[in-house]
Write a protein that binds this DNA or RNA. Structure first.
Length: 883
DNA sequence: TCAGTCACG
DNA sequence: ACGTACGTGACTGAC
């Protein structure tokens, strides 16, 4: 701790920020007496960050004393027109002060002065007394106090993301010094404080004027030098306003504050009072920190709780129990290749830990893992794959904490055991990031910490099991968990382990060809542009197209010109370079993502082993990483050729693919109960043509033109996504009015679809979540958002999630049944890939006929809906031919 | 680490 | 009036 470091906090503005940072959690943060606690909680979090960063010797949190101050007397509208502070925040302020007192930090307010003035005054006093000063606020007004001895930190987003204002940084941001900033504000006025400056003067003009003349006074002294202009006129007219604004904007650094600097010394934390405060607020996380660190630390720096464990050896006598918990440690994300770090095992009350995974190959351990006792794990699929690498065929992995928590609530898609435990108020384990660090700096800590962390994992798995199972039951998700997610994890493990045979030679050949074309395109583009530049840089490309070549700007992004496909498509006819760029983009994508990318991940066995993320998506779909096998090109033939590299294991074998036809629309037809749509599927109509007939009021399918069908197809898609006329019009390039007509017709023809949409949105409003046919949940807290866009998004999600998620449920069931069938029939055929509505298999030649029969059958019968499910099969000697 | 772009269902 | 389709992952350049 530095001897003389003074921390000054703008209590009101930070509390305000804290309140809104956790505004979405407002309902969740309530103590048993009904007091809201979100701002108190976030304030404490912020305080921890600041204390850790600054390590101050002295501190003061300043609050506003009341509405009337010397400024309101100068200008009665000062801060007028502000929305009233919400009562949910007001009620928390006294408790924030209480918290500060318990932590030994002084709070202070002074009638007739604002918090800003108190801070300015102590900042000045502190610097005079030789202190380094750090000021924290949610408000940029305080940046005028920045000096070489005082840094002003302003919250950027949330409460812990801070921007540091030093005099240098002020200069960069505003072009003026901190004191000049007052003058700048005087010219600009301040909307949020409700005082005007000079008409038509904004940040740019104000900054320029002050830089030139140094101050408001300087500006007015030099008025005569200025040319006649609107600006000059405004300056003359608003002179009084400018000088008033300067007075209002200036922080009073000579306020009559009472406490001496020495009185601001941080005192010892009153642990007992703090503990009862946390108990009253129901802050279990902070309580856990207190329990472990006691007096020493109230700053959030805690060790993990110590667990009694034994270091396992070959001689360890393992007790026998019907149920155990097991954790297999690896360093790195990709468990197909990551190094093993160790394991932990909990049998009864005994915990065993080791960093030697080879121990698991010795008899007692191997028998235990392959035997009939029930094992609780965290991430079943990872554990299965890891043990498989060691040559262990684990049996009875019957409980997966990760899967259970994902089903219960997937708002947080972390796959970190510690973080998940924290969601259930279990704080004796830290997150892996806290233990290992992240990015390049990640490393395994000292053995003592590492073993204790491993030990804590099995303890946590067991400790939270009952709670998670209880919640699954409450959500009616036990079936989803037991009969879908757990079994499908086994199937996925098999698929990942099998991997997909990939011909590096084919990729290399294609890469060479593409490389040649890219070089040619590159030089053509440079010629047409008249200079060399990086075509892959949207920024540089934008400058060439829209500045140098003066093409019309169609769309802008946050950072500059948009150069995306739809923009370039519109510019194609105006300059030959555009077409070349489009071709270049397409090929560059193939080269970098698919040729190079895939070559990098072919394992020594000549196969790629993806990982399916089973606990990631908001809807229940899988995702595929390292490599992503769910987005291999198919729409354009140039890209589709990549698929030639994916081949069956046997030279004369087949890649066999089978995909559901319109599965999401069928799910919609089922859940909505719309008779017209159900009828279309039952009679086997082409659904898009059927929709075309409906929305264009035709009598026979013969009247449907290809263009009508295309429009109808887009409407069908739109419906699934939670349609809007604007979105549809943009997609189809038609007028908004016409799009609206399509939609109105659609709802008229399929009336229960509209009912379904309203029903889901209402359900979400009432329950805060929506669910699929199998009770897979998605929480939608934004459904109550005040912001139109945010709320609308939640409403579309409420419509889409049960459909997309329902389709995900169905194919998972099909996968389980399919694997069972393959096993029953003792087939060598392997399931390889799932692409949301499609399954892909590696089929030996002599099994093709069987597979042709059973795969569509199993997929079509996965569930019984009110409409039939249809699955279409394709096959060939590589993945390219299989479609 | 983020934003832009583009590959898939 | 608001500014939009739903769900993903990988690569690149720029900070």
């Amino acid at each position: 701790m530095a001897d003389k470091k003074l921390l000054l906090i703008d209590g009101n503005s930070v509390a305000f920020r804290a309140f809104y940072a956790l505004y979405r959690q407002l309902d969740r943060f309530q103590n048993p007496e009904g007091l809201h606690t979100n701002a108190i909680y976030a304030f404490k979090n912020m305080l921890d960050v600041i204390l850790k960063q600054e390590k101050p010797s002295h501190a003061l949190v300043a609050f506003d004393a009341g509405k009337t101050t010397f400024r309101t007397r100068m200008f009665k509208e000062y801060k007028g027109g502000r929305a009233k502070t919400p009562s949910e925040l007001l009620e928390q302020l006294p408790y924030i002060k209480e918290l500060l007192a318990d932590l030994g930090i002084k709070s202070y307010e002074l009638p007739d002065y604002e918090a800003d003035d108190i801070i300015g005054t102590y900042s000045k006093k502190g610097q005079e007394a030789g202190f380094q000063v750090a000021i924290f606020s949610g408000d940029k007004d305080l940046t005028q106090l920045a000096t070489d001895k005082a840094t002003v930190y302003v919250t950027k987003s949330g409460v812990t993301d801070l921007e540091a204002y030093t005099p240098e940084h002020m200069k960069e941001v505003n072009g003026v010094t901190p004191t000049e900033f007052i003058d700048m504000k005087a010219l600009m006025g301040d909307n949020s404080d409700n005082y005007p400056g000079v008409t038509k003067v904004g940040p740019k003009t104000a900054s320029n004027l002050i830089r030139k003349y140094g101050s408001v006074e300087g500006v007015y002294e030099h008025l005569d030098d200025m040319k006649k202009s609107k600006l000059k006129e405004n300056l003359i007219n608003d002179k009084d306003k400018a000088f008033l604004a300067k007075k209002l904007a200036t922080i009073n650094c000579e306020s009559p504050v009472e406490p001496e600097i020495a009185d601001l010394k941080i005192e010892a934390t009153n642990v007992e009072k703090l503990r009862s405060f946390y108990e009253q607020m129901n802050f279990r996380r902070f309580l856990a920190e207190l329990d472990d660190s006691g007096l020493a630390s109230a700053s959030g720096e805690v060790e993990e709780k110590k667990v009694e464990y034994e270091v396992a050896t070959e001689k360890t006598q393992l007790p026998e129990e019907a149920e155990i918990s097991f954790y297999l440690g690896m360093f790195g994300e990709n468990y197909h290749t990551a190094d093993f770090t160790g394991f932990s095992l909990k049998i009864g009350e005994k915990v065993y830990v080791s960093s030697d995974v080879n121990l698991l190959l010795t008899k007692p351990y191997k028998e235990l893992l392959e035997g009939s006792c029930h094992k609780n794990v965290f991430d079943l699929k990872k554990t299965l794959v890891g043990l498989h690498r060691l040559g262990i065929k684990a049996q009875h992995l019957d409980y997966d904490m990760l899967l259970a928590s994902y089903l219960v609530n997937n708002e947080n898609n972390s796959n970190d055991l510690g973080e998940i435990a924290h969601l259930y108020d279990y704080y004796q384990i830290k997150s892996d990031v806290d233990i290992y660090g992240k990015g390049k700096k990640a490393a395994i800590p000292d053995e003592e910490i590492f073993f204790n962390h491993l030990a804590n994992k099995v303890v946590a798995i067991e400790a939270l099991k009952a709670e998670l199972l209880k919640r699954l039951k409450e959500h009616e998700q036990d079936d989803l968990y037991e009969t879908i997610e757990l079994p499908v994890a086994h199937v996925l493990a098999k698929m990942e382990i099998t991997g997909l045979k990939t011909e590096a030679r084919i990729l290399t050949e294609q890469g060479a060809e593409i490389g040649t074309k890219l070089i040619k395109l590159e030089s053509d583009i440079y010629d047409l542009a008249g200079e060399k530049f990086n075509i892959n840089s949207p920024k540089q490309l934008g400058q060439i197209l829209f500045e140098k070549m003066q093409l019309p700007v169609i769309k802008k992004t946050k950072t500059g010109y948009s150069t995306s496909v739809d923009v370039l498509e519109q510019l194609k006819s105006q300059a030959p370079i555009v077409e070349k760029i489009l071709q270049y983009r397409q090929l560059a994508k193939l080269q970098s993502t698919y040729i190079k990318g895939l070559l990098d991940v072919i394992q020594p066995d000549g196969r790629v082993h993806t990982r399916y993320q089973q606990t990631l998506t908001a809807t229940g779909r899988l995702s595929s990483v390292d490599p992503n096998l769910q987005n291999i090109p198919v729409r354009l033939d140039e890209g589709k050729k990549i698929r030639k590299a994916f081949v069956p294991t046997d030279n004369d074998g087949y890649i066999f693919s089978c995909d559901y036809s319109q599965v999401e629309l069928r799910v919609l037809a089922h859940v909505s109960g719309d008779e017209n749509m159900q009828e279309a599927f039952k009679t086997g109509y082409d659904i898009h043509a059927h929709t075309a007939m409906k929305i264009f009021h035709l009598d026979s399918p013969d009247e449907v033109t290809p263009n009508m069908r295309r429009h109808a197809k887009a409407v069908n898609f739109g419906i699934v996504y939670g349609i809007s006329d604007y979105g549809l019009s943009k997609n189809l390039g038609i007028s908004r009015k016409q799009a609206k007509e399509f939609i109105d017709n659609y709802f008229e023809q399929y009336p229960k679809i509209k009912d379904y949409m309203d029903k889901e949105i209402n359900f979400a409003r009432e329950n805060g979540y929506v669910e699929t046919i199998m009770h897979r949940r998605r929480y939608l807290p934004d459904i109550h958002a005040k912001n139109f866009n945010v709320r609308s998004f939640a409403e579309r999600t409420a419509i889409n999630s049960p459909i997309q998620g329902g389709a995900a449920d169905i194919i998972k069931i099909a996968m389980i049944n399919m694997q069972k069938k393959l096993d029953e029939l003792n087939l060598k055929t392997k399931m390889l890939i799932q692409v949301h509505d499609e399954l892909i298999f590696d089929v030996p030649a002599d099994e093709l006929e069987t597979i042709k029969k059973i795969v569509p059958e199993v997929m079509q019968n996965a569930v019984q809906l009110d409409v039939p499910l249809i699955a279409d099969a394709n096959w060939g000697h590589d993945w390219y031919e299989a479609k």
